[in-house]
């Protein structure tokens, strides 16, 4: 990779006044956040706070009602080669006729571009990534014959194969065994130490403090964003999880019902 030509390094992710609505019902209001490079960010908030929506909208998978998102100073469609994505495990059909290797190879597709076939070098990368998550012995297994934790590792291996600078991960810890969970944590740390930026949707408040160095607290709007030590306070958590926001969701309901 050649060095960046710009004099200043743009931040990996910059979100400005982002508002997102599902059908008519707003789920995120005016999010403003700039994530500096090399951070391991946990996105925390109660159910329905819009955590997944935030990362999907950041990647342009959901249309924004207003606001904009820049990835490394560019709109997403120009920078998508530098972005890795781990969707929720439930989002795919695990009966799909592909094996573990096929799925990890998909991580290389973005680099290949349209119409080009994966090469032996891509296979080597995929194999290395599988090894990293200790799934190499399962390379030729049909994906439906894996446990939940193993499926999640495959998704992580696919994200590793993308060799990105910015990663979005949607609940990578949900429904996995303890061994996988700690393996994922180690992996995330390692990626962070290599200067990658990671945004991870996480629902377990108890572990959030030890897993992430930065937290983004969300409840339909941005409650706080900053180093874990600073924002993991009783007051801010109260603001995120407390009942004071009911009016916001009530208004959203009303808007949703309007023609």
């Amino acid at each position: 990779m050649t060095a960046a030509v710009t004099s200043e390094n743009p931040p990996p992710l910059e979100i400005h006044d982002l508002t997102v609505a599902y059908y008519k019902k707003p789920v995120l209001y005016g999010i403003d956040v700039t994530v500096p490079a090399g951070k391991l960010v946990g996105i925390i908030g109660p159910n329905g706070a819009g955590k997944s929506t935030l990362i999907k909208a950041a990647m342009g998978l959901l249309p924004a009602s207003s606001g904009w998102v820049k990835i490394f100073g560019e709109p997403f469609h120009k920078a998508c080669g530098r972005v890795g994505y781990v969707p929720q495990r439930e989002s795919v059909d695990w009966d799909f006729p592909v094996n573990v290797m096929d799925v990890v190879l998909m991580g290389r597709y973005g680099r290949l571009g349209l119409f080009r076939r994966p090469t032996a070098a891509d296979r080597d990368v995929a194999r290395a990534c599988l090894d990293k998550v200790k799934m190499l012995p399962f390379a030729s297994r049909q994906i439906g014959n894996l446990s939940g934790g193993q499926q999640q590792r495959v998704f992580l291996a696919r994200a590793l194969a993308q060799e990105s600078d910015l990663y979005f991960m949607d609940e990578p810890f949900s429904g996995v065994d303890a061994a996988t969970e700690s393996a994922i944590v180690v992996l995330l740390q390692e990626l962070k130490d290599r200067g990658k930026t990671l945004l991870v949707v996480h629902h377990d408040l108890a572990t959030a403090r030890e897993y992430f160095d930065t937290l983004l607290l969300l409840n339909m709007r941005l409650v706080a964003f900053g180093p874990t030590a600073e924002v993991f306070t009783h007051e801010i958590l109260q603001k995120t999880y407390g009942g004071r926001l009911t009016i916001l969701s009530e208004v959203a309901e009303v808007v949703g019902r309007q023609p």
Binding site: K56, L61, H77, C80, S91, M106, Y109, L114, F115, R158
Partner: peptide, 22 residues
């Protein structure tokens, strides 16, 4: 044959396919 991998990845995981710019 030309677009095998494109058809494959969009069929398996369309969110991911869009995230890698397909």
């Amino acid at each position: 044959a030309l677009g095998y991998k494109e058809f494959k990845v969009t069929s398996f995981d369309s969110g991911f396919a869009r995230a890698i710019g397909f």
